[in-house]
Computed example of a mutant assay.
Amino acid sequence: MEVDYKKYFDLFMEQFPELSPEAKNFTRASLSLEKYSKKEFLFKSGQVQKELGYVCEGLLRKYYISEKGNKITTSFLSERGYATDYPALLRQQPSKYNIECLEPSIIIKLPYIKLQEAYFKHKESEMYGRLMAEKVLTREIDRVESFLFENAEERYLNFIENNKHIINRISLTHLASYLGIERQSLSRIRSKLAKP
């Protein structure tokens, strides 16, 4: 297992090539690695997320439960992506979301407290913190804007174009939920596009 830890920690640290040796050592010493089974939760709605998650292997989905009791998927989180409700993490407030593993997953965790300590002790860490935040928030904004400016078929085509690495790993039910349409509507879109 030690070999696995080193491999995954190295993978995570590759994102920060310009950190000083001291900052790298501090960050690396703060990391932990956890394995999750399919259907296990990284965290649930109502919990305060204490760690930033980074997906080394696997696939997760972030969702909330609507007033009608429907599970509405807001994002899919795969390899080299961050598994977090970032605004709630920053505020250290209970999340409104659930993050559930769709596959067995390996997640690196960086405690929020250690992230803030890194920013304070090693100023160059702040730049990487900003880049992480931009990556997460851009993903969230792209989804919101897709509802404002695209129809269901366009959302589906754009999702396929930008998510080739996970499209065959997602159920039609979860994908339809993410796209904001009924599963039958997604099936119709797929049938229409399949015709020559």
Rank of each mutant, 00 (worst) to 15 (best):
L77I: 15
S45C: 14
I181S: 13
A194S: 11
L19A: 03
K71S: 15
H174S: 10
M132A: 05
E150Q: 15
E182T: 09
D10E: 13
Q49Y: 13
E100M: 13
N70I: 09
E117W: 08
I189T: 04
I189K: 07
N162M: 02
E100R: 03
K135P: 00
S30N: 04
P111S: 03
N98H: 14
L42Q: 00
K192E: 04
T27D: 06
V48Y: 01
K7E: 14
L52I: 08
K7V: 08
K38F: 12
S177N: 03
K6S: 11
L60G: 11
T73V: 12
Q49T: 13
H165T: 14
E57W: 00
L89H: 14
L110A: 01
K96P: 13
L42V: 09
S37Q: 14
R169P: 07
F26M: 03
Q92V: 07
K195L: 13
L137Y: 12
L89F: 14
S75T: 05
K192H: 10
I72A: 06
S171E: 07
L131K: 10
S20R: 01
R183F: 07
P21T: 03
P21W: 03
E51R: 11
M1E: 10
D85G: 02
G180M: 15
G58W: 07
Y178M: 01
Q47K: 05
R61K: 15
G58Y: 04
N163H: 14
S191D: 13
Q184H: 07
N98G: 14
E117Y: 06
Q49N: 09
G180A: 15
A83F: 11
I167C: 01
E79C: 12
F9I: 01
I170M: 10
F41N: 00
R28N: 10
S95N: 04
Q15D: 09
L172A: 09
Y112I: 06
F9C: 00
V144R: 02
G53C: 04
D4Y: 13
A118G: 13
I107F: 10
I160M: 03
F16H: 10
P17N: 05
L157E: 15
V144K: 04
D10L: 02
S20L: 05
Y64P: 06
I113H: 12
S75N: 11
E140Q: 10
G58N: 10
Y156P: 04
E182A: 09
I189F: 03
R169C: 07
L59G: 05
G180D: 11
E150D: 15
P17L: 03
A152V: 02
I99G: 07
L148R: 12
I167T: 02
L52R: 03
Y128F: 14
T138L: 15
L179D: 02
G129T: 05
L31M: 04
D4P: 15
L131D: 06
I167P: 02
Y86L: 15
E161F: 06
K35T: 01
K114G: 02
Q116P: 00
